[in-house]
Structure formats: structure tokens, C-alpha cells
């Protein structure tokens, strides 16, 4: 399986066995983004943009052809899956991020793809990136000793789409 730059959503889902919702256009070529991009509640940030963040040298592993599920919403729902040609992309969760938002880092030697049933697919140009999830300030929650345990930091919590 070769993931060249001109891949359509239909081809990508056929190759990976992952599925997306029917209303998404399958015949359009999946754009490949060289830079920062967001897919719903996830963001892919070039590592070079984030100075304060450290990625461990150990702990990298190859992304298998069936992909790595990066994040699944709390209701058990739709996953964001990272897929790439065998041996062309590696992934680690050993990231020390002061914001606490990083879920991992990826290093792509050729184009890798992020697939989500509702958002479709997006190409990631070769490079090193950090993947972060989204936070929000809990709407109207009064910070208190007990609530502090449930939310991140001062009444912040993760966004799940």
C-alpha cells in the first residue's frame, strides 16, 4: 500500500478499512497540509513551533498499517485514527507538555493521514508534529476543592466532539 499525495477519501477508507459518514465527499483528493491543522477537538502542531515541550527519545513505535487510534470521545464514540504506510511513520506518547494537552508526537517520513468518521481525512506532510487535544473552561463551574479533582487545572476540562 502506497499513500501518495493524490489520495481520495474513498481510496483511503478502502485501504485502511476505516469508515467515515456517508455525507462526506469521497471522490475529492484529500488535502495534504504542511503546517498546523486541526481536526475537531485535535490539533496537529509542528514540533518546531513549541519550544517549551520535550519529546523523549525512547518510546517511539511504528504506526501499523491499520493505524493508531489517537483519541476517542468519552462517550466511546468517534476515534481520530493516524494511518501511514508501513515503516513510514512513528508515534510516541512520551511527551512532556507543560500545558498537559499533548497526547503524543508523530514523525512522518512520507505523508500520513488522520481519519475521523465525521471530519473525514486530512494529510500530514512529512515532518515532526505534536498532537494536542482541546480544552475549555467549564461553563459556570465554580472552582472548589472537589470540582478541582474533576477538571483539569482551574476548572478546565477537555473538549470532546
Amino acid at each position: 500500500m502506497t499513500m501518495n499525495v493524490n489520495v481520495t477519501l474513498g481510496e483511503l477508507t478502502a485501504r485502511t478499512g476505516l469508515d467515515v459518514l456517508d455525507h462526506l465527499e469521497r471522490e475529492v483528493t484529500v488535502p495534504v497540509v504542511d503546517g498546523m491543522q486541526a481536526q475537531g477537538d485535535l490539533i496537529v502542531v509542528p514540533l518546531a513551533m513549541l519550544g517549551q515541550l520535550r519529546v523523549d527519545d525512547d518510546g517511539w513505535w511504528g504506526v501499523p498499517p491499520e493505524g493508531v487510534e489517537l483519541l476517542r470521545s468519552s462517550a466511546g464514540g468517534n476515534p481520530h485514527t493516524l494511518v501511514a504506510d508501513r515503516g513510514r511513520c512513528r508515534w510516541t506518547t512520551r511527551v512532556d507538555d507543560p500545558t498537559g494537552l499533548a497526547i503524543g508526537a508523530l514523525e512522518a517520513a512520507s505523508v500520513a493521514y488522520l481519519i475521523h468518521p465525521e471530519h473525514g481525512a486530512s494529510g500530514i506532510a512529512p515532518g515532526r508534529y505534536v498532537v494536542r487535544r482541546q480544552q475549555e473552561r467549564a461553563l459556570g463551574a465554580r472552582p472548589g476543592p472537589l470540582r478541582g479533582l474533576m477538571f483539569r487545572g482551574a476548572g478546565n476540562r477537555f473538549v470532546c466532539d
Partner: peptide, 16 residues
Amino acid sequence: SYGLSGEQYGRLRRRT
């Protein structure tokens, strides 16, 4: 919301 500054977020290329 992603732990980025406004200047950093302004460089977002694509959102899906």
C-alpha cells in the same frame, strides 16, 4: 483552547 498563543494559532492552515 489548544495551549497556543494567538500568534501561533493564527498560523493554522486547515480545520476540518
